[in-house]
Simulated scan of single mutants.
Amino acid sequence: MITIDPMKPHDALAIQRQASQLVQLGIERDMSVDEARALAEGNGEAWTVRQDGRIVACLGLKETFPGAQAVAWAILAERVGAAHLAITRHARRRIAASGLARIEAIVREAVPAEIAWAMLVGLKPAHVLRRFGQTSETHILCEYIREGD
């Protein structure tokens, strides 16, 4: 059974992250309690997905300019398996339902699955960021722009 509930700070600390998510922008690090609290309780929205009680994802929209712009983020667990479709659909629905003018995410060019997932949730590749981050890797800025407002 898959459930999706508002994220609690301890969810982001408890998830067993995929190996590919242990490094962010070239920096290997663990999330602090304060960072987890900011994701769960700060501007924007945050969700925890459980499959049979095990946390398989934490995801959300962290508003960088409240009411206007956000960064889409996701932490996926090892062995996400069959829950992947539910996670992707939830992320896509939340992005499409958002009233924000701009939602963005930065993904690694060398990891096609990151680009593919950004596109599956409704973001479009917009800009190449060469030599970006701690290890100077090429990244892709993906974005969703609400048109007509």
Rank of each mutant, 00 (worst) to 15 (best):
residue 95 I to S: 00
residue 87 I to S: 01
residue 103 I to Y: 05
residue 75 I to Q: 03
residue 64 T to H: 07
residue 97 A to S: 12
residue 55 I to D: 10
residue 103 I to Q: 03
residue 121 V to C: 09
residue 120 L to C: 11
residue 73 W to C: 02
residue 110 A to M: 07
residue 54 R to Q: 14
residue 95 I to C: 11
residue 65 F to K: 08
residue 113 A to C: 09
residue 75 I to M: 15
residue 61 L to Y: 07
residue 119 M to W: 07
residue 106 I to F: 04
residue 54 R to M: 08
residue 94 R to C: 03
residue 93 R to V: 08
residue 96 A to G: 05
residue 100 L to P: 02
residue 54 R to T: 13
residue 74 A to S: 11
residue 108 R to E: 14
residue 55 I to Q: 04
residue 86 A to F: 02
residue 75 I to P: 00
residue 67 G to Q: 05
residue 92 R to L: 05
residue 75 I to T: 01
residue 81 G to Q: 01
residue 114 E to R: 02
residue 80 V to K: 00
residue 68 A to L: 14
residue 80 V to I: 15
residue 107 V to A: 08
residue 100 L to G: 01
residue 121 V to P: 00
residue 100 L to H: 02
residue 122 G to W: 05
residue 96 A to L: 08
residue 84 H to F: 09
residue 80 V to C: 11
residue 97 A to F: 03
residue 63 E to T: 10
residue 97 A to V: 00
residue 50 R to W: 14
residue 53 G to S: 12
residue 74 A to F: 09
residue 88 T to S: 11
residue 91 A to K: 04
residue 51 Q to Y: 12
residue 107 V to L: 04
residue 105 A to C: 14
residue 110 A to W: 00
residue 70 A to H: 02
residue 109 E to H: 13
residue 72 A to E: 02
residue 120 L to D: 15
residue 104 E to L: 00
residue 93 R to H: 09
residue 54 R to H: 12
residue 64 T to V: 12
residue 118 A to Q: 06
residue 70 A to G: 04
residue 115 I to C: 13
residue 94 R to E: 13
residue 62 K to V: 06
residue 83 A to T: 06
residue 112 P to D: 10
residue 77 A to Q: 00
residue 69 Q to Y: 08
residue 68 A to D: 14
residue 98 S to E: 10
residue 97 A to R: 11
residue 90 H to G: 00
residue 92 R to N: 05
residue 108 R to Y: 12
residue 69 Q to C: 14
residue 76 L to P: 00
residue 119 M to T: 14
residue 116 A to K: 12
residue 115 I to P: 00
residue 110 A to I: 13
residue 93 R to F: 08
residue 55 I to P: 10
residue 85 L to G: 03
residue 92 R to E: 05
residue 89 R to V: 07
residue 93 R to N: 11
residue 116 A to D: 14
residue 54 R to S: 07
residue 73 W to G: 03
residue 74 A to K: 05
residue 51 Q to P: 00
residue 83 A to L: 03
residue 62 K to G: 03
residue 90 H to K: 11
residue 56 V to S: 01
residue 66 P to H: 09
residue 99 G to K: 08
